[in-house]
């Protein structure tokens, strides 16, 4: 009996370790960018670039320049304005706890969906820069369940956060389209 309990405990521990390892891997595995390797090129040793961009664009769309009307400096906020407004719109169904437009951090308070008081959610959105890019927004989602009379952390599917990110990106796209249409 005791042995069985021990085995069960070990299995729980193992599962927990695996889960922890998975979430640790998430932040610690990535492919380094090409500029993260040692380069003996004389061009690479120079700090910065004349003209501000890495080379002169002769074909394609310059994503570094996609700051859009009202995005960034002009509007007085530190991050891309389209992404910021889109994140506000998307998460507005939850009560806001903190919003920092300069650092690009949006934190909601706990929110329980109507009709289900035994679970609650909280979201943190990070706008990662001034440019309007698909990887410019990161959303972290937290979920808790009421067990007995205590809230317990429960994992959330990774896809949920990325679906929320897609919503934000979609909204940002709409906002940008509106703003370009207005500017014409």
């Amino acid at each position: 009996m005791r042995k069985m309990r021990l085995t069960r405990l070990m299995m729980v521990g193992l599962t927990g370790t695996l889960l922890a390892a998975c979430s640790a891997l998430e932040g610690n595995v990535r492919t380094p960018g090409l500029d993260e390797y040692s380069s003996d090129r004389r061009r690479d040793q120079v700090r910065g670039r004349l003209g501000g961009t890495d080379g002169i664009l002769i074909f394609g769309t310059d994503r570094n320049q996609q700051r859009g009307g009202g995005a960034g400096e002009a509007s007085g906020i530190g991050v891309n304005a389209f992404l910021w407004r889109a994140a506000l719109d998307t998460l507005s169904f939850m009560p806001l706890s903190s919003a920092d437009p300069f650092g690009g951090v949006l934190i909601t308070d706990w929110y329980s969906p109507p009709g289900n008081t035994s679970e609650r959610f909280r979201a943190t959105a990070y706008i990662l820069g001034r440019t309007l890019r698909s990887d410019g927004v990161r959303i972290a989602l937290f979920r808790q369940e009421l067990r007995g009379n205590a809230w317990v952390d429960v994992p959330v599917a990774a896809s949920t956060a990325s679906e929320l990110e897609d919503q934000v990106l979609g909204r940002a796209r709409e906002l940008r389209a509106q703003s370009t249409a207005a500017a014409r």
Binding site: C22, I56, T61, S134
Partner: peptide
């Protein structure tokens, strides 16, 4: 969720660019 790889990263196609430096 315990997807090992590539989670959370919103991927998007990017049209190629050609630069001269």
């Amino acid at each position: 969720g315990a997807a090992l790889m590539g989670m959370g990263v919103a991927q998007a196609q990017e049209a190629p660019t050609v630069r001269v430096g």
